[in-house]
Design a protein around this nucleic acid. Sequence first.
DNA 1: ATAATACCTGAACTTAACTTTAGGTCAAGG
DNA 2: CCTTGACCTAAAGTTAAGTTCAGGTATTAT
Lengths: 145, 145
Amino acid sequence: MYTIGQVSEMFSLPISTLRYYDKEGLFPGMERQSGIRKFSERELEALRVIECLKKSGLEIKEIKQFMEWCIEGASTYSERKKLFEARRKAVEEEMLRLQKTLDMLKFKCWYYDTAMQDGSEGRLSKMIPDNLPPEIKKLYDNAHS
Amino acid sequence: MYTIGQVSEMFSLPISTLRYYDKEGLFPGMERQSGIRKFSERELEALRVIECLKKSGLEIKEIKQFMEWCIEGASTYSERKKLFEARRKAVEEEMLRLQKTLDMLKFKCWYYDTAMQDGSEGRLSKMIPDNLPPEIKKLYDNAHS
DNA sequence: ATAATACCTGAACTTAACTTTAGGTCAAGG
DNA sequence: CCTTGACCTAAAGTTAAGTTCAGGTATTAT
């Protein structure tokens, strides 16, 4: 069993955030001893799932729904699985978009590297979009598709 | 030359967002004809860069700074390159974090798939963390590292 | 005994990035 | 002529996810 301060340290989260999550219903059924929150292994796993679902793009309210499903037991396995499948798909799509962003950034790194060598963008503007070096053209095309 | 409505269509962005970007100084030196904004190829490329930098985690104010550097000319190539290098690093790190998130989601998909087959989590709780199938253990370990 | 810590609450505040509202200009079509 | 549609502005409103504040309790160290 851990206090809110210990959990705050373990997860590098402000205490105020943990209290906010609790107030929003993300730790349903968490124990208290004379008013003081007691975080058990269940709440730590909940917190890991919260961070995962948040990163996947879910809002606090929807995470609360998931936590309620957990309390309800075996009858909600299917809903919970559907949720994770959906988040998985969303994150895979997000990673594709991020890869495009990354290719644009790589292209711009090359661009300014070249501009610095040339002292101007004159030559570059003639290379875009069809006279780029092959590797760079790949980045450019993916970033602009 | 394009009107704000055309650009809104082309980028699937609300007109209000384009006006907001303009007000925040993201299109320095954009032309107007009797008050009406005229988006040229320069503004379209600016918009592509805005979307890229935003996705990389940059705030509007910092994007404005970049646009000002562009206006200043060749003397700011080095700053611009440094910016893109930094954003590239940030996005690469973000993709690693997202991969961890994805592994957690995949693990949870497997978990609830198994729970549904078993009808309970009893067997699962004995498998975690050391008796998981090898492929699943990889996901679990990466997600919990 | 008192002072420092760590915990608690409810309510107000913050922030970024938009979005909405209210009111206005201007050109083209019926 | 007048109405429709696309544009304009300034200012107020929205939203999510916290954070801060003011005031209070309970345990521990000096």
